[in-house]
Amino acid sequence: MSNLGPYTYVTLSMGPDEAPHLGVSFYTPRLRVSSGLLFSNPRPFLEFTSQEAHVRISTTGAGAVTDADLATAREIFNAAARYLADCERLHTDQSATDQSASDKTASGTAA
């Protein structure tokens, strides 16, 4: 797979007698993530924003926060924790590989 560089990819698929499907993929250093509380009808939200797309996730409706809302929030939290752990592990591995390559070049052992 080639490296395309940073981008945001948004698709909308609509078929006859099917619910629309929206896909958003962020591959950009310009991604901003925030959260807050909607004031007009208090409920929490999580927001992902780039120059090309804006995604807001909130509870299921204008009423009280439900058990299902809490379960979804926990899933998001757990997925974000796994994402962080994977990023940290890969960053550490890549830094070690880069340092090893740099050490070999400095010592003249690189091919």
Rank of each mutant, 00 (worst) to 15 (best):
V55S: 08
V10L: 08
F26I: 05
R43Y: 01
G63W: 04
G15I: 00
F26W: 08
A53W: 08
F48C: 12
T11R: 15
R74I: 00
S58E: 08
T72N: 04
N41E: 07
P44G: 04
L37M: 03
G61H: 07
P42F: 01
D67Y: 01
T66H: 08
S35N: 14
T28N: 06
T60N: 11
E18T: 14
D17C: 06
H54Y: 15
R43H: 14
R74W: 05
G63D: 10
A53F: 02
E47Q: 15
P44D: 05
G15P: 03
H54E: 10
P44Q: 09
T49P: 00
H21P: 00
F39E: 14
P20Q: 08
L37C: 09
F48A: 15
F39Q: 13
T28H: 09
V55K: 07
P29I: 00
A68C: 01
L70D: 03
A71Q: 14
M14C: 04
S35Q: 15
L70N: 10
T49I: 07
V24E: 05
S35M: 11
T28P: 10
F45G: 09
S50K: 04
S13V: 01
R43L: 00
L38S: 02
G23S: 15
L37Q: 13
L31D: 02
A68R: 11
S40Q: 14
P29R: 09
E18S: 11
P29E: 13
P20K: 13
V24L: 02
A71K: 10
L22W: 07
A64Q: 15
V10E: 07
D69L: 01
S40G: 06
R30L: 09
P44C: 11
